[in-house]
Design a protein around this nucleic acid. Structure first.
Length: 236
DNA sequence: CTCAAGTTTCCTGATT
DNA sequence: CAATCAGGAAACTTGA
C-alpha cells in the first residue's frame, strides 16, 4: 500500500504504468470473486462454509477429494458433485456453486483477467469477513469512483468526501485517478479531461448532481447507490 | 450483423 | 497562464 501511494504521488507527470500492487496477493475470500477464479484454498474455504452451514459431518469427507481449483470445480455437473461429495453434501454444493456463478455472471466486466479482477476486488472489499458477499466489482465509471471513495484505507490521497452524508466528494489527484480508470479500461491515454466529460454525462441521468463553483467536486445523485453509510457496513 | 448504452475523443468557449 | 467546466458531435467498445 505504501508503494502504491508512493507511485501515485508522482504519477501526473509521467506515463508510468501502475501495476505493482497487483501482486499483493493476500488472502482473498472466495465470496469476492467468481468461482472460476477460485484457488484450491478458496474452494476449500467454500466447502468448509457449506459444511458448517448444513451441519454436515465433515469426518465422512476426504480432504483429498476437496483439493481442486475453481476452474476444475466449475466443470463438475451435479452428478459428479454427488459422486465426489456424496448424496447429502453434493447437491448442496452444486446449488451453492450455481448461485455464486450466476451472481458473478451478471457482472459486466467478467471479461477482465484475473489481475484486474483482483485489483477491482481489492477496492470494493470490506475489511472483515462479513456474511454478505455483496457489492461485486463496479464496472462503470461512477462505480469505480465510488469504490475508491468507500475504501479510504487503500486509496489515501486520491479522492475524499466533502460531505459524506450528502454524497459530495472531491478529486484530490485527478490525473492519478484518471490513469487508474484508464488502466482498468486498458486505455493508457485516459486523462482527467476525458474522464470528466463522462462524469458530466451523469448529470442528465441523475447518477451525479451538479455542484457548481467547486472545482473537482461532484455529488452522487438519486440514481447512484452503494455509497451511503447505511448501504455499506452491514449486509442488508 | 444490428442496436443501444456508456463512454472516449475532440473541440470551442467560458470560468476560476 | 494552466486547470477546469460545459456540452455538442461523432467515433468506439461491448453485451444483448
Amino acid at each position: 500500500i505504501k508503494l502504491f501511494v508512493h507511485i501515485v504521488e508522482y504519477l501526473p507527470s509521467s506515463h508510468t504504468c501502475i501495476h505493482p500492487w497487483f501482486s499483493l496477493s493476500a488472502g482473498q475470500s472466495y465470496k469476492q470473486i467468481t468461482p472460476n477464479c477460485w484457488t484450491a484454498d478458496n474452494v476449500l474455504e467454500w466447502i468448509s462454509d457449506q459444511v458448517e452451514s448444513t451441519k454436515f459431518d465433515a469426518n465422512t469427507l476426504s480432504l483429498a477429494y476437496c483439493t481442486m481449483d475453481g476452474p476444475t470445480l466449475c466443470e463438475k455437473n451435479e452428478d459428479e458433485m454427488i459422486e465426489i461429495f456424496g448424496p447429502q453434501l453434493g447437491p448442496q454444493l452444486h446449488q451453492s456453486l450455481q448461485e455464486y456463478k450466476t451472481k458473478y455472471e451478471t457482472d459486466r466486466k467478467k471479461e477482465f483477467d484475473y489481475k484486474d479482477d483482483y485489483y477491482l476486488t481489492s477496492l470494493t472489499t470490506e475489511p472483515t469477513g462479513d456474511t454478505e458477499s455483496d457489492t461485486p466489482r463496479g464496472t462503470h465509471l461512477w462505480e469505480f469512483i465510488r469504490d475508491i471513495l468507500i475504501n479510504p484505507e487503500r486509496n489515501q490521497g486520491l479522492m475524499k468526501w466533502e460531505d459524506r452524508h450528502e454524497g459530495v466528494f472531491k478529486f484530490l489527484k485527478s490525473e492519478a485517478v484518471a490513469q487508474m480508470w484508464g488502466q482498468k479500461k486498458k486505455n493508457s491515454s485516459m486523462t482527467y479531461e476525458k474522464l470528466s466529460r463522462a462524469m458530466r454525462y451523469y448529470y442528465k441521468r441523475e447518477i451525479l448532481e451538479r455542484v457548481d463553483g467547486r472545482r473537482l467536486v461532484y455529488k452522487f445523485g438519486k440514481n447512484s447507490s452503494g455509497w451511503k453509510i447505511e448501504e455499506i457496513g452491514m449486509g442488508m
